[in-house]
Amino acid sequence: MNWTSIVAIYALFWVMTAFVILPIGVRTHEELGLPKVPGQADSAPGNFQPGTILLRTTLLSAALFGLYYANYVNGWVDRHSFDWLISRPV
């Protein structure tokens, strides 16, 4: 696998896991008992921590990409693993 493919696939894993990680642990101002700024949306996060989100996203995407790459090298799951999905004429 080329290094450019590795970077591109890792970036895809990173973006997908970012969308999974973003809502975890985020609370609104109302849930935290904090005062709201005039004009603020009711759903705005009160405890947004971008550094924590970046770290969690990077760690999870690295683990998932590691599994993907190990499967690529060892061939645990390949296209023949899904032959049961193809209906064959009798």
Score class of each variant (00 low, 15 high):
residue 40 Q to S: 08
residue 79 R to S: 08
residue 50 P to C: 10
residue 39 G to F: 10
residue 81 S to F: 00
residue 2 N to E: 10
residue 34 L to D: 04
residue 74 N to W: 14
residue 49 Q to M: 14
residue 46 G to Y: 05
residue 81 S to A: 07
residue 24 I to D: 07
residue 60 L to A: 14
residue 55 L to C: 13
residue 36 K to W: 03
residue 58 T to N: 04
residue 12 L to K: 11
residue 29 H to Q: 05
residue 10 Y to M: 08
residue 38 P to W: 00
residue 16 M to V: 15
residue 64 L to K: 04
residue 26 V to D: 09
residue 11 A to R: 00
residue 84 W to P: 02
residue 79 R to G: 11
residue 82 F to K: 08
residue 75 G to L: 01
residue 86 I to S: 10
residue 84 W to K: 00
residue 18 A to W: 14
residue 22 L to Q: 08
residue 74 N to D: 14
residue 63 A to C: 14
residue 2 N to R: 11
residue 34 L to N: 05
residue 21 I to R: 04
residue 18 A to S: 15
residue 32 L to D: 03
residue 22 L to S: 07
residue 72 Y to L: 07
residue 6 I to V: 13
residue 59 L to F: 10
residue 74 N to K: 15
residue 41 A to S: 15
residue 49 Q to N: 15
residue 50 P to H: 06
residue 41 A to P: 09
residue 60 L to C: 12
residue 7 V to L: 14
residue 44 A to F: 04
residue 58 T to K: 05
residue 50 P to I: 12
residue 78 D to G: 14
residue 28 T to Y: 02
residue 51 G to Y: 11
residue 79 R to K: 13
residue 37 V to M: 06
residue 10 Y to V: 02
residue 60 L to W: 06
residue 63 A to Q: 08
residue 32 L to T: 07
residue 28 T to P: 00
residue 35 P to M: 13
residue 86 I to D: 10
residue 48 F to P: 05
residue 23 P to C: 02
residue 15 V to I: 15
residue 15 V to D: 09
residue 28 T to S: 02
residue 48 F to M: 09
residue 53 I to Q: 02
residue 35 P to A: 09
residue 7 V to M: 09
residue 57 T to V: 05
residue 3 W to H: 14
residue 10 Y to N: 08
residue 80 H to K: 09
residue 83 D to K: 07
residue 56 R to K: 15
residue 11 A to V: 07
residue 15 V to L: 15
residue 34 L to M: 13
residue 9 I to K: 12
residue 15 V to R: 12
residue 46 G to F: 03
residue 11 A to E: 06
residue 62 A to R: 02
residue 22 L to P: 00
residue 55 L to Y: 09
residue 57 T to G: 01
